[in-house]
């Protein structure tokens, strides 16, 4: 029994609270990404390490530069969201990307992706993917030049022109290799599934190990920091759609497992599509969001001009999120359907 009246909390429900706030969630997401980042450094050496540090630093610096400009928000750089944006951005980039381009992407991610919408919680699009889309639009060739993975023995081998002078084009050498999706699209050549699963393929930093991303995602879902419906919905849709296509024409279309494990799908489905700001809040909305995303990804990969479509699919579904949320609002218990015009049916 608490006799001290000053400790009496007067408020409406909920009365049971977990000590969960933005910094805590951000910290856990970053912890769960650490193995993925370490794997990237293992496969791509010092280039990957520098790229990750540059993106995190660039995003935090941009946030510090502009945080005061957002109304009602004074210090947001310490909540860890900018660092997470930077880490995720780095994981979507090819290992040999010049560092100055990574800085441009970081600035675009924070300013175009977040600040101009009013800061964290107001953004329409996932900031890391906005930064990457900006880079892809600006520098399409460096953004699609991939290095082959290596091991610890060539840790200090640069995977590209990492130190290209600012505002100059990087120079490419023979290190570049095609990603599994590009091989499939342009040369109709497959890649062993085991390589895809453990990450021994060329691609962007976080495109490599599906296993580690799944483990990280499982940890977050277990902590309830992640809406498990979204990745689950994406995986189910993609597997189903790809399998139908594969059965219809096995010559042309790869099977469902290839689609699940290749490209940026794992990272996108687990870490980008689940961004709580830019994905629907209702369970039913989450399923709609996830299945739309899955259909878009397979459609772009199989019928579009690009080899990979995860980034644009997520950005597109981000734009649909307010609409999905609006049409999947649950009815409050006991509420009468009086607001609606006669004839309009909802839910």
């Amino acid at each position: 029994m608490n006799s001290n009246p000053h400790n009496l909390v007067l408020s409406t429900s909920p009365f049971l609270k977990r000590p969960v706030d933005t910094p805590l969630i951000m910290r856990h997401v970053i912890y769960s990404l650490a193995p993925v980042a370490l794997a990237a450094i293992w496969f791509f050496g010092v280039s990957a390490l520098l790229l990750i540090l540059t993106c995190i630093g660039g995003c935090m610096a941009s946030e510090m530069l502009f945080e005061g400009k957002v109304p009602f928000r004074q210090r947001t750089v310490t909540d860890g969201s900018a660092a997470l944006t930077g880490l995720l951005l780095a994981l979507t980039l090819p290992p040999g990307l010049p560092l100055w381009m990574a800085l441009v992407g970081s600035l675009a991610a924070i300013v175009v992706g977040k600040i101009i919408f009013g800061g964290l919680g107001q953004n329409v699009f996932n900031p890391s993917l906005t930064g990457r889309a900006f880079l892809q639009g600006c520098f399409p060739v460096p953004l699609t030049t991939w290095a082959a993975p290596g091991g610890l023995t060539d840790f200090f081998t640069l995977r590209g022109d990492t130190f290209a002078l600012p505002f100059t084009n990087p120079e490419f050498d023979a290190l570049s290799a095609a990603t599994p999706l590009a091989k499939m699209k342009f040369d109709a050549a497959g890649t062993p599934l085991a390589d895809l699963f453990f990450g021994n393929v060329s691609g962007s930093l976080g495109e490599t190990s599906a296993l580690l991303i799944l483990l990280g995602g499982a940890y977050l879902a277990w902590c309830r920091f992640l809406n498990w419906r979204i990745p689950a919905g994406i995986f189910i849709t993609i597997f189903a759609f790809a399998t139908i296509l594969h059965l219809a024409n096995p010559e042309r279309f790869p099977d469902g497992f290839f689609h699940l494990l290749s490209g940026g799908l794992m990272l996108g489905a687990v870490y980008m599509a689940t961004d709580p700001v830019t994905s629907p809040v209702t369970p039913r909305g989450s399923w709609i969001f996830a299945s739309g995303l899955g259909i878009l990804v397979v459609s772009i990969r199989e019928f579009g001009g690009l080899a990979e479509g995860v980034m644009y699919s997520i950005l597109f579904m981000n734009a649909c999120t307010p609409l999905i949320d609006r049409f999947t609002q649950p009815r409050t218990y006991g509420e009468l359907n009086t607001e609606n015009e006669p004839g309009e049916s909802r839910g």
Partner: peptide, 17 residues
Amino acid sequence: LFGPDFAGWSIMILPGG
């Protein structure tokens, strides 16, 4: 203006830019 090594930001020439 900037010599042959300059990396143009193609998005600026595209409609999005």
